[in-house]
Design a protein around this nucleic acid. Structure first.
Lengths: 218, 218
DNA sequence: TGTACATCAGTGAACGCGCGTTCACTGATGTAC
DNA sequence: TGTACATCAGTGAACGCGCGTTCACTGATGTAC
């Protein structure tokens, strides 16, 4: 079940080999478990039982548990990138103005998040940042790079916007770019904690209101 | 060290008994460890070693590990309440207008967060929400009640503001109240992940800009 | 002021279970000639 | 088309260590009379 939904690319190109299918199944199960019990709280025993393989089968796919952590995060970040690429592409097809394109993107994002059947499963970056001492330096760096990539992506948009629409307030564009990540991560925490999937898209829409106010004034 | 700083009440009234001191020491160590390794990743062995007691000493203070989880969260929520009470009190002493009082509160909050020597240690509610399957129903409910209490507190302020300053945009006041929690939790994740303590207060100040724009228009 | 008893704040040893990891092995599928 | 070999995708058993929990016990401090 689940396999998160957020980030499924619009269409699968290549069919997966048997081994790749097993690996993806392990990752799906692991992601779900890690987002609800933490990494240390997720045992390999439960994963292999759910995946229907043996311990040694797991170690065929991952050298050790840390490599599972790394693969989980890499896949999550790649899926987010795909999602953002797709939504920006659609938004830009609908409008060529950078501000309105961004506002459309935010609306599409909120709609996408609102349409997830069980709500957003959780942000791997947020989960990992609260367990950073469990991971290798490599994984921690990957986590930070994920956030920096989001900042760079949104910042580039905001630069184009600010060039056309002088901001009504004194605002640091990096901070405003970060705010989308913050509001999304915070919104996920609200939705998860209160078991109300609507809270996350609602927060994204509030961020949208802020951007609109800041550049458009209404 | 640490003992988090955020939430230390302005002054200690009562001196703690020996047992209470030990208990607080365990909680300090546990909070630090849980926020960096997760709850399952934090062993009692490491806590007792750091606290300088034995296993049985620990179980004198807490019936089992779940009770530690509960005590940790209860203390965290109480400390947050104390902090908000203190900051609102100071803000209201400086100004009696509800909007400007709230804006001053947000500035005080940002300043407080900026002054934490090592940055904010992390939000227990966020940490727990990413490990909810580890905890009893009681602890999960406590976590949700924490967020609801923040919402109620900020919502009450926003109601008084909206009565005097009709909002410039169509905005749900519960959502706007939640946004402070979201921005704070998201800001903590930014600060922790990128190891830059300034990002959290920066996000709080952005939220402040939004509130100002929404009610004051500049 | 002295004695008896209760409570506080722990100690020390043992428990069994689950954890991640290793190792030698194997049937099925793919590739070269 | 048949055979030899390599790679893929695992199996099965064993490993030792660390985990949370239990239990009987104890010295120090507080309270009643």
């Amino acid at each position: 079940m689940s396999s998160n939904g957020v980030s499924n690319p619009p269409m699968r190109i290549r069919t997966l080999s048997k081994g790749e299918q097993t690996r993806e199944r392990i990752l799906d199960l692991a992601q779900d478990a890690v987002l609800h019990k933490g990494f240390a709280g997720t045992s390999l025993d439960e994963l292999i039982a759910a995946a229907g393989i043996t311990k040694s089968g797991f170690f065929y796919h991952f050298r050790d548990k840390n490599e599972l952590a790394k693969a989980l995060l890499e896949r999550y970040l790649a899926q987010e990138e795909e999602l953002f690429d797709a939504l920006f592409k659609r938004a830009d097809e609908l409008n060529e103005d950078p501000l309105h394109g961004f506002l459309i993107f935010l609306k599409l994002l909120a709609d996408t998040l609102a349409d997830l059947p069980n709500g957003h499963p959780g942000c791997m970056v947020a989960s990992y940042c609260y367990q950073d001492h469990l991971f290798s330096q490599e994984v921690r760096a990957l986590n930070a790079r994920g956030i920096m990539a989001w900042r760079a992506r949104f910042r580039a948009r905001l630069d184009r916007i600010a060039a056309l629409y002088p901001p009504r307030i004194d605002v640091d564009l990096d901070a405003l770019a970060d705010m989308l990540s913050a509001v999304a991560d915070g919104g996920i925490i609200l939705s998860k904690s209160l078991r109300d999937p609507r809270l996350l898209p609602q927060q994204v829409m509030l961020y949208r209101s802020f951007v609109r106010l800041a550049f458009l004034g209404n």
